[in-house]
């Protein structure tokens, strides 16, 4: 899926030692975080530009949530520089937090309050909250407005988490595995919600295990492995995907054939000339995001 937001031509990660980017929504240089003797984040550099959707991918334990929660102000860092909307999260106050929306991996907790009451209360901490009913409509929970938080199903609860994340009208929204527990239809609806938020200028940092989700939503993806960013690129270009040979498959004389080619258009034109009508079982495929991702993670683990 193509992106419409204004992401500059250079899509790569910042080089180590480059100064912090004052215009970025999030700018991270040389971030280090240790737990005991284990190093969870080991010199991570990252810039997330205002208005973009950035997906952070990586296996469990690679440092995704640690990085995100340092940016959100939940965890201390052991080294490096971090600026989120121009502020160091370690010292960010109420005014800084009022510009953020946070959907935690662990959710927003149990409550005896109804969804509407929860959103009203949560919104009242912000300067210019969205209307609770409007937010319920956005996440598809209108029918649950009067249901108590703890009576919701897993997927409904996750949508309530997202609702709580956007009720404060954030400039920057953190989404840590937001669609876990969603059925396919709910995920598609969630994607369209995220796109409409992007159209309003909301910057989003998304972590996810669903590569189709990253591909559908993200302007750029970053693959994090062993505490560092292995690569940052547009989804279509990650891991040299855009330049990788395409594979053309078809059936000829009853036999499945395939050919890897750098010029699939020319190849298919030649192929079509050999057949009177349709080329049987014709398919042209590029490596999927999942293919290149698994390859990158595999290389890193080797």
């Amino acid at each position: 899926m193509t992106s419409t937001s204004a992401v500059p031509a250079s899509t790569a990660a910042p080089r180590p030692g480059e100064p912090l980017d004052p215009d970025a929504a999030i700018s991270v240089r040389g971030l280090v975080k240790r737990y005991g003797t284990a190093t969870a984040v080991d010199g991570l550099d990252l810039d997330i530009r205002r208005g973009e959707i950035f997906a952070l991918l990586g296996p469990n334990g690679a440092g995704k949530t640690t990085t995100v929660e340092i940016c959100e102000g939940f965890r201390d860092r052991d080294g490096g520089e971090v600026r989120v909307l121009g502020t160091d999260p370690a010292t960010g106050g109420r005014r800084w937090k009022a510009q953020l929306g946070i959907v935690l991996q662990s959710g927003a907790g149990d409550s005896q309050l109804t969804c509407r009451e929860l959103l009203r209360a949560h919104g009242s901490y912000y300067s210019d909250p969205r209307d609770p009913d409007e937010v319920l409509e956005l996440v598809g929970l209108t029918e649950k407005a009067r249901s108590r938080g703890r009576t919701l199903s897993g997927g409904q609860r996750r949508r309530l988490d997202v609702a709580l994340g956007i009720v404060g009208r954030p400039a920057l929204l953190f989404l840590d595995e937001p669609t876990t527990g969603f059925d396919p239809e709910a995920r598609r609806q969630f994607w369209s919600l995220i796109r409409s938020l992007r159209d309003l200028g909301t910057t989003m940092l998304l972590t996810t295990h669903y590569l189709d989700e990253a591909e559908a939503l993200a302007d750029r993806v970053g693959v994090i492995a062993r505490g560092r960013l292995a690569e940052v690129a547009r989804p279509a270009e990650l891991g040299g995907r855009g330049r990788a040979p395409a594979v053309v498959r078809w059936t000829e004389d009853g036999v499945r054939r395939s050919e890897a080619t750098a010029t699939p258009t020319a190849f298919v034109r030649d192929l079509a000339a050999r057949f009177p009508g349709e080329v049987p079982d014709l398919a042209v495929a590029r490596p999927t995001l999942e293919d290149v991702y698994l390859q990158m993670i595999g290389e890193d683990r080797a």
Binding site: A98, S124, Y125, S127, E134, E137, G140, R169, L200, T202
Partner: peptide, 23 residues
């Protein structure tokens, strides 16, 4: 879920945070 209909993000520096008493 439906499309976001109303205005987008605001600049919080121009809007006061709710008072302690209200919260």
């Amino acid at each position: 879920m439906s499309a976001v209909s109303t205005t987008g993000t605001t600049d919080p520096s121009r809007t006061a945070l709710p008072s302690l008493g209200a919260v």
